[in-house]
Design a protein around this nucleic acid. Sequence first.
DNA 1: TCCGGTTATCGAACCGGTTCGATTTTTATC
DNA 2: GATAAAAATCGAACCGGTTCGATAACCGGA
Lengths: 335, 335
Amino acid sequence: MATIRDVARLAEVSVSTVSLALSNPGRVSQKTLERIRTAVAAVGYVADPLAQSLARGRSKMIGLVVGNVGNPFFGDIRRELENYALEHEHFVLIADSSGKLERERALVEHLIGLKIAGLALAPSSFGPDYVKFVESLKVPMVCFDQKVAGIERDFVGSDNYLAGAMLTEHLLQLGHRRIAFIAGPQHMHTASERYRGFMETMASAGVDVNPNYVVDGQFTRSAGYEAAMRLLIQPERPTAILGANNAVALAALQAMQELGFDCPGDISLCMIDDVQWSNVITPRITMVVQDTLKLGGIIARRLLHRISTPDAAAEPPQDFVLAPKFVPGNSCRRV
Amino acid sequence: MATIRDVARLAEVSVSTVSLALSNPGRVSQKTLERIRTAVAAVGYVADPLAQSLARGRSKMIGLVVGNVGNPFFGDIRRELENYALEHEHFVLIADSSGKLERERALVEHLIGLKIAGLALAPSSFGPDYVKFVESLKVPMVCFDQKVAGIERDFVGSDNYLAGAMLTEHLLQLGHRRIAFIAGPQHMHTASERYRGFMETMASAGVDVNPNYVVDGQFTRSAGYEAAMRLLIQPERPTAILGANNAVALAALQAMQELGFDCPGDISLCMIDDVQWSNVITPRITMVVQDTLKLGGIIARRLLHRISTPDAAAEPPQDFVLAPKFVPGNSCRRV
DNA sequence: TCCGGTTATCGAACCGGTTCGATTTTTATC
DNA sequence: GATAAAAATCGAACCGGTTCGATAACCGGA
């Protein structure tokens, strides 16, 4: 590998001039610039990003840390961030914490050790320690998906209260009253907001919520399956189930199919968040989806703004909350 | 941030001794080791990975480059690699090329600029130029998924010929003769092998393949949808469709549903590769799946072997080809 | 021609570690 | 107690860049 000293020798200038010429061509005379360019081409010089980062104290990389890259929710976000970053000569490094707090911490710290220019983080936890940890990170960053109380950073996400409320209202309009809710872990902002959307919409419609109809699905497939089973074996079954996320709702669908219930004939079902291939799932689930493309765009723009504008660090953190979209299916029937 | 010089000063030893003590505690006297450890703790010293990588010429990071991290196929592989790497104090950086050759090249080169210790690569292209590119990478590496002719590197993947043959044989046993095949891009090894498995199994069963029954689905959802439509509008329709991957098969299912065909009543369907939530798709698709967990384990072990065994570079590249598994569904009927 | 003010280039220090040959200290042997 | 061998420690060079104050070259104006 050719180094900057090789270039300097060949162009017969000092190393510092080469460095200057490469990072700021305007401040070097036309003649030397050309000599340097020729030399660069001749030896095939490419700056070592590692050495650059060490010397500059910052690299051209952006870290994207999520709990599960396989989640299609992250697909658009990743793509948008990558494309936008690339336009600004930055690279995106993805790190997957598998939802584990300790691993997330290790990954983030490692990335920061790499002197990443910025960080897009989907928080995996909450609480004072976690808040302190995130706020201790001295890097331009944008949080997304999960709003964590106390973290004073830019946040990009969807209106989860609205998401829960929309589907609840939809079921109410179809005449349902015995509506069950498979909830997520309440310490998660998304989960508690969706729950709140459900409860308050029911309340303002004057419909009592049977406590047995609210079960915890942990946002996971397995817990959602159990929770759904618990709903389905009750003597007075709900006429509709609202899954707080895709995993618990589809687990409920699976449970219904296994027990022989027809959806929507026996029980209606709807959910928050899409999955891949949802349109070949029978019945097509009525859902409310997040505008992942737009979310990704905002995350990317905001993060790169903070990165490239030197005094953006002073700008106060801002929340960007997008309304979700209603996508009708045929999994909910009028009663 | 505390540097190694701070530690040296506090422990009253030279910088080189600190460095030695930290990387090779056995070669330092007990007394100084303790003094150094105390000093490290006192100033909260953590070695700068960037500086380490620059000095050593190699980092503790492993690159994982794939065409689409969202593909569940990569889920297990990523997880296995991450876990195994972590046990050996390595970190995995994921980079997504979105299937674009140019971006893959840029990402790989950037990662190598970062002096990654090893690379797990799912090749996205083929041909002499590509082979030359991959072979020019002077990094311990393991290729997986797509076997590229000419690349002399470790390879881990599934027996795609067998995958195609198994499903073909299954359909033949059920009495099907008019079997259609939605193929992938033939320059891809996986696609051509699956195709070969289909064709040769048909041939050895003495069944002619109607040329109109073999259509190109490019392994993508949209092309697969078109291809399926082309099959379904033929006057003499096939009685079964074999999708060369999950995307084209499910696109075919969608097409069938939209046109009003019943699966498996009117047409049977089976596919290679699983998708998430396949068990809530109606009908449950009969398929052949890869043992992604085992694939991931082999990739991880092989790569870390090459990384940590200094003279493993001399070991000739090896192919690891696993047999896929048959997973019966109810999308194929006897005729 | 001389001078003040730009503009171009350079040298040296630095980023934060590693490595290796040289030097000093310790230990074992006679 | 002298001496060779082994163990511990050190200094300096190096990895490959950036940055900044200092010097040198250049320019127009008096």
